[in-house]
Structure formats: C-alpha cells, structure tokens
Amino acid sequence: MSARLEAGDAAPDFTLPDDTGSQVTLSDLRGRKVIVYFYPAAMTPGCTKQACDFSESLDSLAGQGYTVLGISPDKPEKLARFRDKEHLTVALLSDADRAVMESWGAFGEKKLYGKTVQGVIRSTVVLDEEGTVTHAWYNVKATGHVAKLRRDLGLDGGE
C-alpha cells in the first residue's frame, strides 16, 4: 500500500473518465478547492448513502468554492446507472485499474467482516486552490461523513 496523503502534501494529478465518458483532470480544477472521496462500489448501501449525502450538500459546498469528485473502481457505464438511479449530482469518476486510489493511499489492506483483505479504503481528501492537501481522512464511515466533513471544514457556521 502506498503512503497516505497528509496535510501539506501535493496531491498526485490524475485524468479519469467520468460517468459520461468525458475525461476529468485534477490539475484543470486549480483555482478551486476540491473534495476527492474514494468509495468501494456504486449501488451498495453505504456508498449510495455517501453519494446521496454529497449530492444533497453539493450546492452548499459549491457555494463555498468546493468541487466534489467521487472515485470508485466501477466502469463509467455502471457509474451512469448509479447516477440515474439515485439522482446524483456529484461527479463520479472511474478508476478501474485503481492506480489513482493506490497513489492517494486509498487502496490497500483493510478489515472486512473481521478478515484482512485488499480493497478500496473509504477515504476523503480535501485540496486547496493550488492542489495541496489540507485534510485527509481514511477509513471513514459512510453514514454521517459529509456532516462531519462540513463541521471539520467549518462550513456549518461554527455549529
């Protein structure tokens, strides 16, 4: 497993296809703050909850200058079905070979039902306008994560 990103690290650049087949390049988003979240699989309960939470918060996050990118190993066609089925507005990117996940520390050993397995580590990384990591969370819980993220970033009026 590659090293996890920490505050102050330069985020590794990437170009990945989105759920429409268009290419999204991280460095093209310079000048905006970016939230990149990694999730194991589209159309599973936890990942659906997390994607819906990000979609529900998207207007508010965008208003604070954030772009949100969700990345999974699913192919673009499955991501499109996921988007349509759940009415998602968050950008969904496909990292089929898991190379981006590995370079960001979001793929490796994890516990699943008491066993150690290789897989996607549910993670969220926040970047500033220059592409530098400001926050990085690994092994996050799907439920309640967006609310915690908003609190940690001070986006809820200090509540």
Rank of each mutant, 00 (worst) to 15 (best):
H135Q: 12
I35S: 05
G105D: 03
Y39N: 08
G70S: 14
K110P: 05
A42E: 01
T44E: 01
L5S: 02
V90H: 01
S94A: 15
V146N: 02
G119S: 06
L79W: 00
K148H: 07
G46R: 08
T44R: 04
E56D: 14
K78R: 15
I35T: 07
G108W: 11
D9R: 06
S55C: 11
G108P: 01
T89F: 01
L61V: 10
F107N: 02
V125Y: 03
F14E: 06
G21E: 00
L153H: 00
D84M: 08
V117K: 02
K110I: 08
M1Y: 07
Q64C: 09
V140C: 03
T25C: 01
H135R: 12
P12A: 09
V140G: 03
A80D: 11
Y37W: 10
E102I: 14
T15H: 00
K85N: 11
Q64V: 07
G70V: 14
D97L: 09
V24Q: 06
H145R: 13
S2A: 15
E77D: 12
V125K: 08
A62G: 14
V140E: 04
K111M: 13
L16H: 04
F38D: 00
I71S: 02
D13A: 07
A42N: 06
V133F: 10
L149T: 07
E102K: 14
E159I: 14
K111F: 05
S27T: 06
M1K: 02
V125C: 01
L16P: 02
L127E: 03
D28R: 11
A41D: 02
V100E: 02
F107Q: 01
P17A: 02
K85S: 09
E129I: 13
S60C: 01
E129T: 15
F107G: 00
D95V: 10
G8F: 12
T143D: 15
E102M: 07
K141G: 02
H135N: 10
R150L: 07
L29S: 05
F107T: 02
T89A: 11
T143C: 00
F54G: 01
P45T: 09
G31N: 10
S103Y: 03
Q64G: 01
E77C: 00
L92K: 07
G46Q: 04
F54S: 05
Y113K: 12
A96M: 12
A51E: 08
S94V: 13
E129N: 03
D84I: 05
V90L: 15
D59G: 15
V126L: 06
L69H: 08
H135L: 01
G157M: 06
S103M: 00
R122Q: 06
G70C: 10
A99K: 13
P76H: 12
T67E: 15
H87Q: 14
L92M: 09
L88K: 06
D156G: 05
L93F: 11
